[in-house]
Computed example of a mutant assay.
Amino acid sequence: MGWKTLDDMDLGGKRVLTRVDINVPMEDGQVTDATRIERIVPTVTDIRAKGGSPVLLAHFGRPKGQFVPEMSLRPLVPALEAAFGCPVTFVERPSREWIDAQASDAVILVENTRFTSMEEANDPQMAGFLATLGDVFCNDAFSAAHRAHASTTGVAHLLPACAGRLMAAELQALEAALSNPKRPVGAVVGGAKVSTKLDLLQNLVKKIDVLVIGGGMANTFLAAQGAQMGASLQEADLHDTARAIMDAASDAGCTVILPTDGRVAREFKAGAAHEVIALNGDTVLESDQMVLDAGDASATAIADAFANLKTLIWNGPLGAFEIAPFDTATVATAKAAAALTASGELITVAGGGDTVAALNQAGVADDFTYISTAGGAFLEWMEGKELPGVAALMS
């Protein structure tokens, strides 16, 4: 662990510039899912307990460097106060003089950092200004760590810097899953397209023992082996790439598990008439048939593979989990992984928006060892890329 945490910092009487992710869904001015707010409570609470005053920096939406009233952070104040159990003071244009005039344990929320183009440009002038607002920098926004912005990276080089509780938990979970995992280690990589996860697949096959490929991605791999996939979602221009990934996995000693059967329908809708068909390189589907989920035999084989692992990373569903019955394989395998986790036999780390939604649907999100709410940053970490926001904490 090359970064400092709140435990390494003297926060007494300090203003602690704290980068958080409170980019929460809202409807009619009300927060509809406060998960991201709830996850920063330990950091805010601990800063105050150590005698510090959190000055919260955050973005909201994509205002593209302009002031957009609908993307102001002001409406989040009631939800933040409810979560923290204390008043939150909102400020549009802060100054150090104004901040120092507030109570020594005040929680201060600064307006959307992306209301100026200097944020995403990591402009030194903005980073320098932000640094004047605090004595210590605490980054608790792993989900924004893959962006080299003024509030995530620039300011970290100008103040004593540390990771917040959520950031530290994310980094520890991911290091345990991929950097120094208990072996054998496996991964589930699903979703619609291979093209969005090429770097991930190419990195994983060199580091793990078992790779489960599901969702529309699996169709591309099956087609690359000669299957005629009918109307199934697949990327014909990536067949060579799929074969290269399979070869790389073989060279690295990584076992790749593809579906051996699938739920096939002629309509993409809930409750659509379907049948379970064997899948392999010789499969020939009719022109209007599409694979929308892995079959029961595949789900059983995947669950059996989980039983031989010590660590499992999960990113992406095994089918069109949003519509029944094409969530069957995802739910069944997620429950199998959760049961192994509960018995202490498996460490499970999952991340990505669709992944979290699928695990929630299966009712097992709370049973996994760790669930990351960081979409892009989670993926880039798994791809083996350096995250600027993390690297800045180690300088």
Rank of each mutant, 00 (worst) to 15 (best):
3 W>T: 03
4 K>G: 01
5 T>E: 14
8 D>F: 00
11 L>D: 00
17 L>Q: 03
18 T>K: 10
22 I>K: 01
25 P>R: 04
27 E>M: 06
27 E>L: 07
29 G>L: 14
30 Q>N: 15
32 T>F: 00
35 T>E: 13
39 R>L: 15
48 R>H: 08
50 K>A: 06
51 G>D: 07
52 G>D: 11
54 P>R: 03
55 V>S: 05
55 V>N: 02
56 L>N: 00
61 G>K: 09
61 G>N: 09
61 G>E: 08
65 G>Y: 11
68 V>R: 11
69 P>R: 10
70 E>P: 05
71 M>L: 13
74 R>H: 08
78 P>E: 09
80 L>F: 02
82 A>K: 12
83 A>D: 03
113 T>Y: 09
114 R>N: 13
115 F>L: 08
115 F>G: 02
119 E>W: 05
131 A>M: 11
133 L>N: 00
134 G>W: 10
135 D>E: 12
137 F>R: 03
146 H>E: 12
146 H>M: 14
147 R>C: 02
150 A>N: 06
151 S>K: 00
151 S>R: 03
152 T>G: 06
153 T>Y: 13
161 A>C: 15
162 C>M: 13
165 R>N: 12
166 L>S: 01
167 M>L: 15
169 A>T: 05
171 L>W: 04
172 Q>K: 15
175 E>W: 07
177 A>K: 07
178 L>V: 02
179 S>D: 15
182 K>Y: 05
182 K>L: 13
185 V>N: 02
190 G>N: 06
191 G>T: 05
192 A>N: 04
197 K>C: 09
198 L>R: 13
198 L>K: 13
202 Q>N: 14
208 I>D: 08
209 D>Q: 08
213 I>W: 03
217 M>D: 07
219 N>V: 01
226 G>S: 11
228 Q>I: 11
231 A>W: 05
236 A>E: 15
237 D>T: 10
242 A>F: 02
242 A>R: 01
243 R>I: 01
244 A>P: 04
245 I>L: 07
245 I>V: 15
246 M>W: 03
248 A>D: 15
250 S>W: 02
252 A>W: 05
255 T>G: 07
259 P>T: 12
264 V>C: 08
266 R>Y: 01
266 R>D: 03
268 F>P: 03
269 K>T: 12
272 A>C: 02
272 A>H: 00
285 L>I: 10
289 Q>D: 04
289 Q>N: 04
293 D>M: 01
301 A>I: 00
304 D>C: 07
307 A>C: 11
307 A>V: 05
310 K>F: 07
320 A>E: 08
321 F>R: 08
326 F>C: 00
337 A>N: 09
343 S>R: 15
343 S>E: 14
346 L>S: 08
346 L>F: 13
349 V>P: 08
351 G>K: 02
351 G>C: 14
354 D>R: 10
356 V>F: 09
360 N>L: 08
363 G>I: 00
365 A>C: 14
366 D>A: 10
373 T>V: 06
374 A>I: 00
375 G>P: 11
377 A>K: 01
377 A>E: 04
378 F>I: 08
379 L>H: 05
379 L>T: 02
385 K>C: 06
385 K>E: 08
386 E>P: 05
390 V>Y: 04
393 L>R: 08
